[in-house]
Design a protein around this nucleic acid. Structure first.
Lengths: 120, 120
DNA sequence: CGTCTATATTGACAGATGTCGATGCCTGGT
DNA sequence: ACCAGGCATCGACATCTGTCAATATAGACG
């Protein structure tokens, strides 16, 4: 593909390096890297999933717990978790039969720093 | 409409009042109010529009300037501006022939505060 | 080895979204 | 009064997205 050049750094890293929205106009390339991160968060179910994982004891949650928190099918939850994982917002770890997800703290703080006006 | 009950406060206010994602699980209602805000931002063109307006001299920008910054049709830019305006992220003011948009600072800082982990 | 349980993947489908061309609506100037 | 230009709205279209049922995979435990 023609866009394989920039893929050595994750979207999360792309966010971490950039100045806030209101400081200077976002480049097209930067916008194209940041938007998928926001898109991954921009769903009520995924927002709650992120919050459930991030606020869970130990900073991680088992899929079995997450499934029970929604009235959605198991494949649907699995799909949303995949979206968050692919965006770099959730990390995945399999322990025995269960799979645990953990929020990538860097991703959230990076995003927040980008959106909010940084007060130095 | 059946959902007229909660519409007395804007999405922006909904964000401002809520604790960060990682503090406690987001309620379904809160998620449903916050997600549209993120969805409005979760597009490369709209991200750049927000950034252009927010970083523009005087904190506001004319639509005519914004049109020139993209290789998109004028109706498309107008559509994106409407999405941002409806979400409460941009304020609209018509002066003479021109229309100026201004970023709602509260919206951005509110969102950032919600996403980022508050360090107590 | 077979079976059960926990997740992931696939395929399908309705509804949302981004884009454009055409058109309408104001406003200012002639 | 008319015209020209800035911006919004409309209608149409292709693509993307959220959801489910069905199925696959992979460990654990007899």
């Amino acid at each position: 593909m023609s866009n394989s050049v920039a893929l050595s750094l994750t979207p999360v890293q792309a966010v971490a390096c950039c100045s806030p929205l209101s400081r200077e106009p976002l480049s097209e390339a930067a916008a194209e890297q940041i938007a998928p991160l926001l898109k991954a968060l921009a769903d009520p179910v995924r927002l709650r999933l992120m919050s459930l994982v991030a606020s869970h004891e130990g900073g991680e949650a088992c899929v079995c717990d997450l499934n029970d928190a929604f009235e959605l099918s198991q494949p649907t939850i699995s799909h949303h978790l995949k979206v968050l994982h692919d965006a770099g917002l959730l990390e995945r770890e399999k322990r025995g039969v269960w799979v645990y997800y953990r929020a990538s703290g860097d991703a959230l703080t990076g995003l927040a720093g980008l959106i909010g006006t940084a007060a130095p």
